[in-house]
Design a binder for these strands. Structure first.
Lengths: 126, 126
DNA sequence: CGGGATCCGTATGGATACTG
DNA sequence: CAGTATCCATACGGATCCCG
């Protein structure tokens, strides 16, 4: 994963934000968590195609970035719950117009929200 | 670069949008073009650190995605001008809240817009 | 000037097996 | 269940040379 943050500084806020959500599955993770807090296994099912390692890495980074909160319960069947922090909620809101743009301009018919993992069929309209 | 579009389809609009702006320098390019149409050389100067090849690739992809328009003038000193399409303008607008989020949450003090010498004091090309 | 072609290093992500 | 460890593939980005 991103070994370390961009050394110097960001050129702009978008640049900075992109560094946070740059992972391949991050926005999908955020999206799933936007619905409800999730356990690791749930998340894995909600984000089809992601592997444990990558999911784990992404979650760790999102946690470091203050986007998700990780609550660990020291129980016998280990239980961990991930949820969005206020900052994460704000990020998701900021992401909304971008999602609208994507739906409008690149993939008409894309669902608005389907954390269960629905994939639409369709081709590039361009 | 992205050899081909994501095989199946996108899970959501954000997912789709991310595929469009996923390149390392794309948002910076968009940002520069948001100010004014630019020639290749200008762009290269506006996006410090990017190499010709990558800039070229990114521009080509952005063009394929209908984000930028490429106007080629068959003159003796070859001249090409890149500009944002309406779709590109819309994308930039959709990116705005994300930029605001980034400025607020990850890099306080990041400038709002400075496409001229995008280099912020102290910024360091990777 | 505006790139295309080539070669190459690295970061990112994937598969699988294993552990607390 | 919730990860970690290891190995591996490749996409991405960079340097350089070259051409219209």
């Amino acid at each position: 994963m991103r070994a370390v943050r961009r050394p110097g500084a960001y050129v702009c806020g978008i640049d900075a934000a992109m560094d946070v959500i740059g992972g391949k599955w991050k926005v999908l993770i955020l999206w799933a968590l936007d619905e409800k807090p999730c356990r690791f296994g749930e998340l894995r099912r909600s984000v089809p195609g992601v592997t444990e390692k990558v999911l784990s890495s992404h979650l760790k980074e999102l946690e470091e970035d203050g986007i998700v909160h990780r609550e660990e319960y020291a129980e016998v069947p280990p239980r961990v719950e991930y949820s969005l922090t206020p900052r994460g909620v704000a990020l998701n809101e900021a992401l909304d117009p971008l999602g609208a743009w994507g739906r409008e301009h690149v993939q008409p018919g894309t669902p608005t929200h389907s954390p269960e993992g629905v994939a639409v069929a369709g081709s590039d309209p361009l």
